[in-house]
């Protein structure tokens, strides 16, 4: 009485087909990542050396290292973070903890989502108009970083807000019922429990910011500048633009050089992402619920 029917067999075939289909799509997704990394390591690996990381480019950027570009990228990211974290986190706290649920809040949320969808080249032109020309920062680290900050703000806000809203509501109610103000509740209960998610979001943002090219191209990144910037009002080289330049603009570049630059850039991003995962694991263990 428990023998399979024709229908069972048919359903089983469909089941197997679907499983293979979904698995195939997943592998298809992973494949490019693996290929990119393999090609970069294979072709760019020979270019890597301590000197490559610590020396200035020479010979019309066909020899030497990438030191100014590496430092420039770090500077751009740091200044962008200093600008975007306080604004983004504060805005997220307002939207998650204070804002009433009305049309204005919904409009703000809509604006943030749309801001996240603005193409980076549009941000670049905005940065050029606003920071370079209108505010008179010139093409500088400051102008480029502020452009990057504006571009990453929506993502910082959304990821922070999601971390805040992951803190269960009864905790807030318990605090309010004891006569705690909203800020006391946020400072003592909500933020300590949301901090791991907030930091993870920020670090992932860093890795994205480091690779952006278009927004810094018009606003502060230099084609070739073989010394370090002295202040945020100076221009700087950056890894992403340097990669673009050596790959497309400079003749007679040895093949391994652009791959080497790309490998360093990807290495930075991977280190950042690993750091964020490690941080999340450490902080999650401290959670008290």
């Amino acid at each position: 009485m428990f023998e399979p029917t024709e229908l069972n067999a048919h359903n089983w075939r469909i089941e197997q087909g679907m499983r293979v289909l979904f698995l195939g799509m997943t592998l298809l997704l992973v494949l490019p990542v693996v290929i990119i990394l393999a090609v970069l390591v294979y072709k760019g690996g020979p270019a890597l050396s301590w000197a490559f990381l610590t020396e200035n480019p020479t010979g019309g950027m066909t020899t030497g290292g990438i030191f100014p570009a590496l430092m420039g990228t770090i500077a751009l990211v740091l200044v962008a973070l200093i600008a975007s974290i306080p604004v983004g986190v504060a805005a997220a706290i307002y939207l998650s903890e204070y804002a009433p649920d009305n049309w204005l809040t919904r409009l703000i949320n809509l604006a943030i989502i749309n801001l996240a969808g603005v193409p980076s080249i549009v941000h670049a032109l905005f940065g050029l108009g606003a920071f370079v020309l209108f505010f008179g920062f010139g093409t500088s680290i400051l102008a480029a970083s502020l452009t990057l900050a504006i571009m990453t703000l929506p993502v910082v806000i959304v990821s922070t807000r999601e971390s805040l809203q992951a803190v269960p509501q009864p905790f807030r109610e318990a605090c309010w019922n004891m006569g705690a103000t909203r800020w006391q509740t946020i400072a003592r209960v909500v933020l300590p429990n949301a901090i791991s998610g907030i930091l993870t979001g920020i670090i992932l943002e860093v890795s994205r910011t480091a690779g952006e090219t278009a927004p810094i191209m018009f606003t502060g990144a230099a084609f070739f500048l073989p010394f370090l910037p002295e202040s945020v009002f100076d221009q700087t080289m950056a890894l992403s633009l340097h990669l673009f330049v050596v790959a497309t603009q400079v003749p007679n570049v040895p093949e391994s050089l652009p791959y080497g630059v790309a490998l360093v850039l990807i290495g930075m991003v991977l280190i950042m992402n690993s750091a964020s995962i490690a941080l999340r694991m450490v902080l999650r263990n401290r959670k008290k619920w």
Partner: peptide
């Protein structure tokens, strides 16, 4: 309002201790 809430304590259906230590829960208010 905060004084009202201080003078009038409330206990809920589902226990809702804060995600803090036992000691810090008692001292929160």
């Amino acid at each position: 309002l905060l004084q009202v809430r201080k003078q009038i304590g409330m206990v809920f259906q589902r226990p809702n201790p804060l995600p803090l230590s036992i000691r810090d829960n008692v001292l929160f208010g």
